[in-house]
Nucleic acid binder design. Structure first.
Lengths: 201, 201, 201, 201
DNA sequence: TATTAATCGAGACGGTACGTCGAGTCTTTAC
DNA sequence: GTAAAGACTCGACGTACCGTCTCGATTAATA
C-alpha cells in the first residue's frame, strides 16, 4: 500500500536546495512581508528554479508551513510545558514566551504570512491544525489536564475552551494589532482567566 | 478642520455606482471567496470602470471595509447590547447571534476577505479598529461595565481582557476553522468565562 | 439651406479660450511631442475644460490643424512666391525657407503631430489638402506656371509632378529623418530637378 | 563583439509564437488599421501572452517592423533591380510594382502603421533606415550608378537626390492620399525626372 | 437693465489599452 | 531523474486618456 503520494520520489531530492528554499522563504517573509512574498522571489533568493518549488510543494502556504515547521524543529522546544505545580506561574511563563516570539519578525512575519494562507485555504488549514498547531495544543491540554487533576482547575471545565480563553486573546491582539503585546498583558490574561469574571465571595 | 482628504470632491459622486460597487464586492466575496476577488471583477460586476473604484478607495480592502460597513449600517443593529439584568443570558444571546452571522456566507466571506486585508495592511487595520470593530467593542464594554456596576463582575476585572476572552474564542474558531461553530459552543464559552477556571469552593 | 453644422453657434464662443487651447496645443506638441500630446493635457495647460475642446473640434488632429493654421495666418506669409524672373534662384530661396521652418521645433513638432493625424484620418487628410496644403500648393503651381510661360520650364511638364519632385525630397527627409536638412540640400534638389537626370549634350 | 543585447537569450525562443505574432500584427493592421491596432489585440489574435511580445519587442512599431521585414524576406525579392539597359523602362517597371504594392492593403496598411511609428520614434526611424529602407535604397542606388556609368545619367548627378525625386512623389502621394496612385502616374514621374524640367533645346 | 440660455471650468463616469508582475506549466541543458 | 534556467499563457494590477455626461458659475445677446 502506497502513501497518498503527494510528491515525487524523495530519494533523489536535494536537501541543500530544500533548506535554501525554506530559508529564503523565512528571510523574505521577515524582510518584505506577505504581500510581496512571491514564489519567484523565493526561488531567486534560494538560487533554485521555480519548478523545484512546484515539484515539492503545492502552494506558497505549504512552503511557509514547512519553513516554520523546520524553524520550530530546529529550536526543538521542550516536548512538554513546564510543570512546577504552580499553574498560574507556569502559564504566565509560557504566555510571556509566546509574546516574545511574536515580537521577533523572523518568526512573526512568516507566521503572519502562513496565517493568511491558512485563513484562505481550507486544506492547508487542516494540515496546519494537524501538524503545527495540533501538537502544541495537545501539549497545552496535557498541562491543563494535570492542573485539573491537581485540583487547580474546576473539574467540569472544558479544557479546549480554557485553552482558547488563555491563548486566544494574545493571538488576536497580535493578529489584528489590537494593542501592545507585553508581558504584563500576558500576566493579566492568565489572572483574569483563572479568577473568572464573577465576583468572588 | 479638514479631513485628511483621501478622495476627490464627493459632491459629484454617483451614489448608485457606489452602491453597485459595494454590492458587487459583497456578492463576489460570498461567491468566489477572497482568493478570486479582484478589483477588475468587482468593477465588471458593478458595471463600473476600474478607475471609479480607484478614485474612491485606496485598496481592495478599503472597498470591502465600506461594503461591510454598509451592510451593518443597513441592518442598523441595536445601538446597545440587551440588558435584561441577567448577564449570562444576555451574553449567550449575543454570542449566539454572532455565531449565526458567521454561518451566513454573505457576511462571513466578505468578513474573511476583509480580515485578510486587515492582517496585512496596518493602515487598514487602524481604520478597521476605529470604525468597524471599535464601536461594537465600545458597546460590548458598556454592557460589561453595567454588569460590573450591578455587582455581576469582579470589581477589579480588566474588561478589555474579559471581552477578548468571551468573543476571542468564537472569532478564532471561525477564522482558523478550528471546530464546529455552534450555539452550544457559544454557551460553553460564556459559562466558562464567567465561572473562571479555578474550582469554586 | 443650412451649412453642415459641425459646431454650435459660434456667437458666444470665447475667443480667449480658443486661443489658449491652440497655444497650449502648439506648446505641448513642441515640448513633449506627439506621443504624449493628449486632449487632457491640452485642456489642462489651456486652463479649459475638456468639453470645451470637444465642443468645437472633432479630434485632436483638428485642434492641431487649427493651431497650425493660426500660426501661418499669424505669419500671414506672402500670398505669392517671389518671382524675380530667375526660377532657380526663387525656388532655392523658398526651399531654404522651408528647410528653416522644419528646423524650428515650435513649427516642426506640431507639424509632425498633424502629419501623423493626417496619415491616419482620411477625413482630416481631405481637409488638410483643402485648407492647409492646397493654397500653398496652388501658389507654388502659379509660380511654376509663370516660369513655364516664360519659357523656363518644358512646355509639356506635368507641374503637379514637378512640384512633388522639388518639395517632396525635402519633406521626406524631414518626415523620415533621412539625413541632414540643410540649405545646401535644398539647393541641390532644385538644381537636380531643373537639370534633369539625363546627361546634357 | 557582442550585440547591444536588447532581448533575452534567443535560444529558447518559440519560433511558432514569433511567427504567429508577426502574422497577427500584419492581419490586424490590414483589417482594422493603425488606429485600432493594439498590442493586446495582436497578442489575443496570435494566441500569445502580452508578456511574450514585450519580452522580445520594445514597442508596437518594432513588431510591425519585424512583421514587414518577414514579409519582404518571405517574398525574397530580387537582390537587384532589373537592368535591361533601358533605364527609363526599368524604372517604370519598378515604380509600377511599387504602386501595385501600395494598392494591397495587406502590405499598405502595415506599412502605413509602421510609417507612423517611424515618424514618431527616432530610434525606430534609425533602425528602419538601416534594416528596411537601407538595403532597398542601396539596391536602387546601384542601378542608378550603373546607368550613370552607361552614360544614361548626368555624370555629376547626386544619386541620393535623384532617388528621392523618383520614389518620393509616389510615396508622398500614398502617404498623404494626395491623388490617384496609378501606373500612369508612375510613368509620368519617371519621364519628368529623367527629362528634367527645363525645356530641351 | 434684467432675463435667460449657451458656454465655461471642472471633473466623475464607463471604457480601452497600457506596460508590469507573478502564477503555474512546459521545455531544454547540465549534472 | 533532479535541478537551474527561463520562455510560455494567462490574469490582475494600477495608470493614462478617451469621449460622454452632468454640474454650478459666468457671460453675453435679447427682451
Amino acid at each position: 500500500m502506497t502513501s497518498p503520494r503527494r510528491a515525487p520520489a524523495a530519494a533523489r531530492r536535494s536537501e541543500a536546495t530544500r533548506r535554501a528554499i525554506l530559508d529564503a522563504a523565512l528571510d523574505l517573509a521577515a524582510e518584505v512581508g506577505y504581500a510581496r512574498l512571491s514564489i519567484e522571489a523565493i526561488a531567486a533568493r534560494a538560487g533554485a528554479g521555480k519548478q523545484t518549488i512546484y515539484r515539492w510543494w503545492p502552494s506558497k502556504g505549504a512552503v511557509l508551513f514547512d519553513a516554520l515547521l523546520a524553524l520550530s524543529d530546529g529550536a526543538d522546544g521542550p516536548a512538554e510545558l513546564p510543570d512546577t505545580g504552580d499553574l498560574e506561574a507556569d502559564l504566565k511563563a509560557v504566555l510571556r514566551a509566546t509574546v516574545e516570539e511574536f515580537a521577533d519578525p523572523r518568526v512573526s512575519e512568516p507566521m503572519r504570512a502562513l496565517s493568511v494562507e491558512v485563513l484562505l485555504d481550507e486544506r492547508l488549514a487542516a494540515e496546519y491544525r494537524e501538524r503545527l498547531d495540533g501538537p502544541v495544543r495537545a501539549m497545552k491540554l496535557r498541562r491543563l489536564q494535570a492542573a485539573r487533576e491537581a485540583g487547580q482547575l474546576a473539574p467540569d471545565a472544558d479544557l479546549d475552551i480554557v485553552l482558547d480563553m488563555i491563548w486566544g486573546p494574545v493571538r488576536d491582539r497580535w493578529l489584528y494589532r489590537e494593542g501592545p503585546l507585553t508581558a504584563d498583558f500576558a500576566d493579566a490574561v492568565v489572572e483574569t482567566a483563572l479568577d473568572g469574571l464573577r465576583p468572588r465571595p
